[in-house]
Amino acid sequence: MTLRAHDLTLAGRLAGVSLTLAPGQVTAICGPNGAGKSSLLTCLAGLVPPTGGDVSLDDGALAAIPASDRARAIGYLPQQAHVAWDLSVETLVALGRLPWNRDRSEDASAITAAIAALDLADLRRRPVGQLSGGERARALLARVLAGQPRWLLADEPLANFDLMHQQALLAQFRNLAGQGMGVVLVLHDLAQAMNHADRVVVMHGGKIAADGHPETVLDTAIIARVWQTGARWLGDPGQRALALGPVRAR
């Protein structure tokens, strides 16, 4: 029940990434722009064939798994999704059921559950074009959840949310992991990774620079080396905040 990358390379993006992800955990992938975070995520999702190495799901090569099986196992939420047609929220969320064989009652209950989980019940008939940025992002996430995947791979899922919804969503991810889902998030906000992830993978120049428990991985030395900025952590574990800027000795 693992999602595993072995010596993954992708021309110009990834240079030998090996990683074993366990279900029931929230894993944050962090790193500066161009570090290869999104490339790693799309390779793990089976959307981009790596130029070297391989990805395996439950000990079987991901590339050899039928596309519909893979789609039922791994839900992928891209950073930006343009919705081409003005669907209602409910119709949009229902797209998540496409990999499944049509079963009306199962589909309906999965769609209703996904809509409820993201607090969209009042908006279910509203056209996507009339939603705010945050509502739209919630509908897009509900689309992934409607597919009931065992893995959720999300590229900066918090980018369009206000603080309150970010907190609610992080609690939601925690809840999903608690139900056994493997949650993999690309995050830019290191404090969110620090406080809410079980594991942090720091990417730098297409390689893994550090990997492990957030408190040990995200130390100031790594931040200085990878992000090229001075920083120090404030607060207690679980409620950390990051103060940026060169830390001067007094």
Partner: peptide, 11 residues
């Protein structure tokens, strides 16, 4: 409807 990448992720 949700783009090339999502379509592929949907199988």
């Amino acid at each position: 409807t949700l783009g090339d990448e999502v379509a592929r992720s949907l199988g």
